[in-house]
Design a protein around this nucleic acid. Structure first.
Length: 295
DNA sequence: AAGTGGCTCAACCGCAGATCA
DNA sequence: CTGATCTGCGGTTGAGCCACT
């Protein structure tokens, strides 16, 4: 015997979420925690299927989500991880805890694909014969690059997990010189707060219905998030502690080696960046030293 | 000012693995 | 053990926005 059906699809609302729905969902999750999505629509009265609730939470409402422009560092990490892991957006997102897999996927499809296409196009036009060079990279070199990739991923993972070192986290994720944060949603709580304000302006009567709920998330962990200024670029790590259970990172010891791009301009671009940060040498040495652990 | 085409991103869909009765 | 359901993931869609003509 199984369980009752997930969503009967009768009377299930679709389309964009309203601020009211967001508030209801957030306040419910704040009380009960994420998970048991099946129970969310019934307990909250939301006319949404459990899937939709989960998606809304993980992609939009979850604390700690950073929205807006990707930094150059994030961009390069995504490119590198995509080359390493393929289109496994959830795995890639686990290395960028402040970004959702949906965000990364969108960013890849809308920005990075084109960017890489351009780079590769330039390469093909500019240096004929280079492709054969890239193919002729010796196995040893290729393996070392691979090890470097794995080590970089491991380091990113360590940084992502070192929640007890917020300063390191902030440095690695939020670039100090990243002064432009064009996002209108610096954090989900700020988002919710804004939504709530707008909503209350629009419909002062209906605010009674959720007034108790909305006030509740001004108290607990959410209030901490509200204090973080969007202009600071870095999100308070208070958020991260909230969803620490969700940020469990899967370490893939068997990455698909279907590297989508040759080790050429792009590779140089990425490695040059690492070198500029004075890390490449360390990566190589450490990767070689730690390879035994990985395989 | 109106029309149009491209871009962005939130949300949906379907599938696969995990979980539960 | 089996089958139904839940959860998570990746691919795709489409509404809204913006720049250009």
């Amino acid at each position: 015997m199984g369980r009752p059906p997930c969503c009967d699809k009768i009377g299930v609302k679709k389309g964009p979420w309203t601020p009211e729905e967001d508030i209801i969902l957030v306040s419910y999750i704040q009380q009960h925690g994420p998970g048991n999505w099946r129970a969310v629509p019934t307990n909250t009265g939301l006319l949404r299927c459990s899937k939709s609730c989960r998606l809304r939470w993980t992609n939009y409402l979850r604390p700690g989500i950073r929205r807006g422009n990707f930094t150059e560092h994030e961009e390069k990490m995504i490119i590198h991880l995509q080359a390493l892991l393929g289109n496994r957006w959830a795995a890639i997102a686990s290395y960028l805890p402040q970004r959702t897999d949906n965000d990364i996927k969108n960013y890849w499809n809308t920005h990075l694909k084109k960017k890489l296409g351009k780079i590769q196009g330039q390469e093909e036009n500019g240096g004929k014969g280079n492709s054969s060079d890239s193919k002729s990279i010796s196995k040893g070199q290729w393996e070392r690059r691979l090890q470097t990739d794995i080590h970089m991923a491991k380091q990113a993972l360590c940084e992502a997990l070192s929640l007890d070192k917020p300063s390191a986290m902030a440095e690695s994720v939020a670039q100090p010189n990243e002064s432009v944060q064009t996002s209108t949603y610096a954090s989900s709580t700020e988002n919710i707060a804004r939504l709530l304000q707008n909503w209350m302006k629009k419909s002062p009567n209906s605010s009674e219905a959720v007034s108790s709920d909305s006030s509740s998330f001004n108290n607990n962990n959410f209030s901490a998030g509200l204090s973080s200024s969007p202009s600071e670029g870095a999100i308070s790590t208070t958020f991260l502690s909230f969803n620490s259970s969700e940020s469990a990172v899967e370490v893939d010891h068997e990455p698909k080696f279907e590297t989508q791009m040759p080790l050429t301009l792009l590779e140089k671009w990425l490695l040059d960046d690492a070198a500029a940060q004075g890390q490449e040498g360390d990566f190589m040495e450490m990767a070689l030293a730690e390879t035994a652990d990985l395989f």
